[in-house]
Design a protein around this nucleic acid. Structure first.
Lengths: 123, 123
DNA sequence: GTCGTTGCAAAGCGTTTGCAGCCTA
DNA sequence: TAGGCTGCAAACGCTTTGCAACGAC
């Protein structure tokens, strides 16, 4: 059974306050503001268990290490700013997937990533 | 200046014959059929130089190591079979991207990945 | 007190690099 | 023959694991 440790509380808090997907390293730094001694191994272990528990979801972007976000937001995709390197959630979905799927293939899910500049960096 | 070695010839040949994106490890195994002594470091060095030369393009899928395919195929996306783990090219594009892009964000490019079963594995 | 959790250090895994010898042009 | 290329082994960065001490319940 899952225990309520200082470390786990700090990690959950960091996610609640972040508002965008976090990498393990970002998470370590944020959570260390509350638990200085926190180690990276604990971060990875909690990322895994919070994911298994259904509290977190992995955000996997092509060509880079996974980030994580609080689960339960419904279907959405992500926008990756090439300048600040931050990842944003975007609502909606282009649809039209059936037309693109090759004949005989069984489509089960899809990922969709936008790249460019976020509003702050575009200004 | 680029030299025409047995190793490089074997690597190019493997790509021409494969017909789908190759991972470095797959490529090593295929190219070793022609040059037994081929080492993985040489594979990675050639993947990079062939990419810089514009002959190859990286295919980056979320959450896994990059694969590579011969360049110059125009805009397309990929389908990843969860059963045989192979990656297929798919033509076409869902479009409708403007509607999904948040206000103030500047969209420059996008990636799109389909997951499911390929025709062989669905049967 | 039990046993899940933690921090550290070591191990893994895919990729890159240093180096001495090789081979193409 | 010059200098790019190769194979090997060591180094890398990120992630996972083994282990003894810790601490929530």
């Amino acid at each position: 059974m899952q225990r309520d440790t200082r470390q786990r509380r700090a990690i959950r808090k960091a996610f609640r306050e972040a508002g965008h997907p976090l990498s393990p390293q970002e998470l370590l730094e944020l959570a260390q503001e509350h638990v200085e001694s926190l180690g990276i191994a604990t971060v990875y272990r909690n990322l895994r268990s919070l994911q298994e528990e259904g509290w977190l979801e992995a955000v996997e972007l092509p060509g880079e290490p996974a980030r994580y976000e609080v689960a339960g937001k419904g279907h959405h995709h992500h926008f990756h700013c090439r300048d600040c390197d931050r990842v944003y959630e975007v609502e909606g979905c282009p649809g039209n997937l059936k037309d693109v799927t090759p004949k005989g293939f069984k489509l089960e899910r899809h990922e969709f990533v936008l790249y460019g500049l976020c509003d702050a960096c575009a200004a």
